[in-house]
Amino acid sequence: EFSMMFKHFDKDKSGRLNHQEFKSCLRSLGYDLPMVEEGEPDPEFEAILDTVDPNRDGHVSLQEYMAFMISRE
């Protein structure tokens, strides 16, 4: 189920989600993330990124995504 969600939000089929795609994916899974303006701080989402994209390369791989989802179950 999680990998299907990942593929759905991987719009460019790159095998990874940019942070915006990842945020959309989390919202569709029921995460209550506040709407913030582009460039505004988003501490809740930043905290999630610290876990799922610790190297802050700007992308979430399928492996990082799956590890995050399994840790939340």
Rank of each mutant, 00 (worst) to 15 (best):
E1H: 02
F2V: 09
F2C: 07
M4L: 14
M5T: 08
M5K: 02
F6Y: 06
D12A: 15
K13R: 13
G15S: 07
R16T: 09
L17Y: 00
L17R: 01
N18C: 05
H19I: 04
F22I: 05
S24Y: 06
S24F: 08
C25E: 02
C25L: 12
C25F: 04
C25T: 05
L26M: 08
L26A: 01
R27S: 09
S28H: 13
L29N: 09
L29W: 06
L29F: 09
G30V: 00
G30Q: 06
Y31D: 05
Y31M: 13
D32C: 11
L33M: 09
L33D: 04
P34V: 07
P34W: 03
P34K: 13
M35V: 14
V36S: 11
V36F: 07
E37G: 13
E37D: 14
E38P: 14
E38W: 07
E38I: 11
P41D: 10
P41H: 14
P41F: 14
D42S: 09
D42L: 04
E44L: 10
E44I: 12
E44V: 11
F45H: 00
E46D: 14
E46K: 06
E46R: 04
A47D: 11
A47S: 12
A47L: 13
A47F: 07
A47C: 12
I48K: 01
L49I: 07
L49Q: 02
D50C: 03
D50G: 04
T51M: 14
T51V: 15
V52S: 01
D53N: 04
D53R: 02
D53Q: 02
D53W: 00
P54S: 07
P54W: 02
P54L: 05
N55R: 13
R56V: 03
D57V: 15
D57Y: 11
D57H: 14
D57C: 14
D57P: 01
G58L: 00
G58I: 00
H59S: 12
H59F: 15
V60G: 00
V60E: 00
S61D: 11
L62S: 07
Q63V: 07
E64T: 13
Y65R: 01
Y65I: 05
M66V: 08
A67P: 03
F68K: 05
F68I: 03
F68L: 08
F68P: 02
M69E: 05
M69V: 14
M69D: 04
I70N: 08
S71G: 12
E73C: 09
